[in-house]
Simulated assay, not measured.
Amino acid sequence: MRFALSPEQEAFAASLDALLSTLDCDTATRAWGAGDHGPGLKIWRRLADQGLTALTTPSHRGGLAEEDGTGATTVDAVLAFEVLGRFCPPGPWTDSAVLPCLLDDEILASAAAGETLVSLAFPPYLPFALDADIADARFLVDGTSLRGFTPGTPLTSLDSSRRLFEPVPGDELGPALDPARAFDLGALLTAAQLLGAGRHLLEMSVAYAGQRRQYGREIGRFQAIKHLLAEVVTALELARPLLHGAAVTAEPADVSAAKVACGDAAHLAARTALQVHGAIGYTAEHPLGLRLTRIRALTSAWGTPAVHRHRVLAAIAP
């Protein structure tokens, strides 16, 4: 079987990329981390108008997904979240996308429209709730049950824009529809963001290597720099088919393989970007830092690398 993106899918990803390139996501992300949610919420609403928050919601709840497969698919969601990873806008994007796997309720319509922000806690894989302080709806996956929760102690994240809170369990709301599918989708969309962030760091590194001069020539002309960047290209290009394949099959082992590969490739891109940029990459003002901390935080979100490697091993071991 030959898998290739359709022209419509490529155009959708390109339209999101074009839109986000006109928005100041870096400033919004920094403001979000400082407690000013206004700029980030404006970006949230703009992307909701483009249908991003409705990609995984069934049509009978106001979303774009159809049961017969004619509407938005998981591949479409992965493409969208890869673009999100490139620009790193703040907000609980993955939580909102996963919610349709956990319940079938009227709240899905407002979430799909971008009017309701959702915060999820999914222990042990997602023990802390993202942006619970400003979320309109909060859900805690307790085994096979779904509970509400209130935000407890705020916690510090490596990524200052990821505002985490300990969930204080509330009343039971009923059974969770498909927790296993919710976890896999969350891990898959997190992998997509990692891949997008890694690809963006590669582009930044290539551009900088073509501008920075040492010893009378651009550093990108040195063989050592070329080798570093080539290794990143290889890692990212090998991870992307795993990501898209997992979006098609939805097999847990495939999802975990994609999460590991995208995380490793993004980490390599981050490490190489620091080597190429040098001291300027360590400054808080440089856009490189936003992707570095986001990659570090997302690598362990929705299952650590050890968790996902164990799932792959369990699937292939005799």
Score class of each variant (00 low, 15 high):
230 A>L: 13
162 R>A: 12
250 A>L: 15
245 G>K: 03
141 V>L: 07
257 A>C: 11
238 L>F: 09
281 G>M: 02
237 E>A: 04
239 A>C: 10
140 L>D: 00
246 A>H: 08
251 E>N: 15
160 S>F: 05
183 F>E: 15
208 Y>W: 09
181 R>C: 05
223 Q>W: 10
252 P>E: 02
257 A>R: 14
176 A>G: 10
173 L>W: 14
236 L>T: 02
260 V>T: 04
272 T>E: 05
144 T>Q: 14
143 G>T: 07
174 G>D: 03
264 D>P: 11
223 Q>K: 11
257 A>W: 02
192 A>H: 01
283 T>Y: 09
251 E>M: 12
193 Q>D: 01
282 Y>S: 10
233 V>A: 11
148 G>L: 07
280 I>E: 15
177 L>M: 11
239 A>K: 05
264 D>S: 12
266 A>E: 14
271 R>T: 14
204 M>Y: 06
276 V>K: 03
203 E>P: 02
161 S>T: 09
251 E>R: 13
223 Q>S: 14
209 A>Q: 11
266 A>F: 05
275 Q>M: 06
169 P>Y: 03
257 A>S: 13
223 Q>I: 06
185 L>C: 04
251 E>Y: 12
152 G>H: 03
159 D>Q: 05
208 Y>N: 03
228 L>V: 05
190 T>C: 08
241 P>Q: 02
273 A>V: 03
222 F>R: 12
227 H>L: 02
283 T>V: 10
160 S>K: 08
169 P>H: 01
170 G>F: 12
242 L>K: 15
221 R>G: 09
198 G>Y: 00
169 P>N: 04
185 L>N: 09
155 L>I: 11
154 P>M: 13
271 R>V: 11
212 R>V: 07
274 L>V: 04
228 L>D: 08
226 K>G: 14
262 C>R: 02
201 L>M: 13
160 S>H: 12
217 R>A: 12
254 D>F: 05
181 R>D: 12
263 G>A: 02
232 V>L: 03
268 L>S: 06
210 G>K: 08
220 G>Y: 08
277 H>F: 14
175 P>I: 08
155 L>S: 15
265 A>E: 03
206 V>Y: 05
221 R>T: 11
187 A>M: 02
234 T>D: 12
238 L>K: 11
230 A>I: 10
191 A>W: 00
197 A>S: 10
286 H>F: 06
252 P>W: 06
229 L>S: 01
148 G>Y: 02
162 R>Q: 13
216 G>Y: 15
163 R>E: 06
272 T>Y: 07
163 R>Y: 04
213 R>I: 10
284 A>V: 15
246 A>P: 11
153 T>H: 14
196 G>V: 05
157 S>L: 09
184 D>L: 04
201 L>R: 03
216 G>V: 13
145 S>E: 10
180 A>C: 13
242 L>W: 01
235 A>P: 03
282 Y>E: 12
286 H>S: 10
287 P>M: 08
246 A>L: 08
272 T>R: 11
